[in-house]
Nucleic acid binder design. Structure first.
Lengths: 249, 249
DNA sequence: CGCTGGATTGAATCCTTTCAAGTATAGTGG
DNA sequence: CCACTATACTTGAAAGGATTCAATCCAGCG
């Protein structure tokens, strides 16, 4: 099974054997962490960069009163903040969702990678895509209704998982509870449940037993106002559909 | 008047004369753009990195049906995406809010800057802070009520403007319309107006004629659940108040 | 086979939006 | 200097989407 990080980066540009080998060597010491465990906590000094090889994790922030926001999801191939070392402390926490396999990359390991200009560019691309995902998250939370958010979330995840061979347009494994989804989308778990029922009833998607089945991807994209260009996948991502974002004025 | 970008970076680390001079030279060709004008549009190929010297601008995305989300604000000293050049196209637009002075930095200019290890680290710091601001924006949109969002927004802006000498804890110039604020915070302009009235009535802040007056910064922070550590200002930003974020479980 | 966490549903409540109308403010031209 | 216009701000009333609280159902698991 190929390394999902290599696989993802190759959506940006082809790597040579040497570059692939370099990453594979760095990925030899896999660390396993059980589900629902903090990997890094807010306030910690950044010691390493985590790369997910298998399993799901998330970034989150939580208030003293219990409210919690999941800021981003990590699926296989995802890397967090390669330049985090310039910071004194973490302003958020990282936690596993499922049992997970991760690699802890040291600052030296990152330096080694970025010595290759192509890998350096690939890492920039990756973190720019991560930023773009965050921006789109802001758009979702700020402008999309609950149903639109859910639809958008499913669309995005479909493409991200396809990029590492873990899903198709017809569906994928989604190991989140409805509470997790609620904390991602800024709505309550009850409302997630009701919205999911509506989407099932209208023949869009079905979520059962950690398996998401997409019955009508086109309709899902339409509901979500989903424009995949922000994911910058493939080398020619500038195709704006008409149902989609357009400029002001 | 000192360059706000230099001033901001020096919140991260002191620069030497050579480094300051390098930036000042790159800032010689100032471009002026009038208010309410797109600087870069979604779909454009990235040609340069914009650095704001004076005036306010924003990043936004807009739907075909008119809904618009302002994703981030640029105040003097703010730089957008120094590594944007690896991307094929912009997934969002940039627009001015006020008349503005900006500098367009080419890829070579960025390369020149990052040849200095300290400036390279400072640029990383700056973009990590930008990411952190986006993450906190996600938390606001996902978990905070309208009043909490507004309060948080005012607190964050106070610190960011203080970092470049454009505000104090007592207030600052805020050249946004209530509609702009609404599009930042994911609520309607009508609700912004009502919430602003409530905050004025309860003696927290007053916003009149583009001037924000903060009457009770402590109470504002409390309402906002504001923990400034995500801004990573100063060299010792690890001070978590008790009213503030804490870990799960 | 009972336990436990997650999923589901109903009913009431509430925060926010929508629609509409009215007021204030700033800039423009006669 | 004052109509005139445009834009922003303000407020009310009604409607709606999402939350809250609580109870029930379900499935996997020891």
């Amino acid at each position: 099974m190929t390394n999902p990080f290599i696989r993802k980066l190759e959506n940006f540009c082809a790597l040579n054997d040497e570059e692939r080998y370099l990453i594979e060597v760095l990925c030899r010491h896999v660390r396993r962490v059980e589900a629902r465990t903090d990997i890094v906590q807010q306030g910690d000094e950044p010691r390493c960069v985590n790369l997910v090889l298998a399993g799901w994790a998330c970034r989150y922030k939580q208030f003293a009163d219990g409210r919690r926001q999941i800021i981003s999801l990590f699926v296989p191939g995802d890397l967090c903040d390669p330049h985090i070392f310039v910071m004194r402390s973490m302003d958020h926490s990282l936690a596993t969702i499922t049992p997970i396999s991760i690699v802890r990359l040291s600052e030296e390991a990152i330096d080694t990678i970025t010595r290759s200009p192509r890998l350096q560019a690939a890492l920039w691309w990756d973190s720019l895509v991560t930023s773009a995902i965050h921006r789109e998250g802001i758009v979702s939370l700020g402008q999309r209704s609950a149903a639109e958010r859910l639809a958008h979330f499913f669309c995005e995840l479909s493409l991200r998982l396809q990029a590492v061979g873990l899903g198709t347009e017809a569906g994928y494994e989604l190991p989140l509870t409805q509470q997790d989804i609620a904390e991602m989308l800024g709505i309550t778990n009850v409302h997630v449940n009701r919205t999911l029922r509506d989407m099932r009833d209208s023949g869009l998607v079905t979520l059962r037993g950690r398996q998401l089945t997409i019955h009508d991807f086109t309709a899902l994209k339409r509901l979500a106002i989903f424009d995949p260009s922000y994911l910058h996948q493939g080398r020619e991502s500038v195709q704006l559909d008409s149902n989609v974002l357009m400029r002001a004025n």
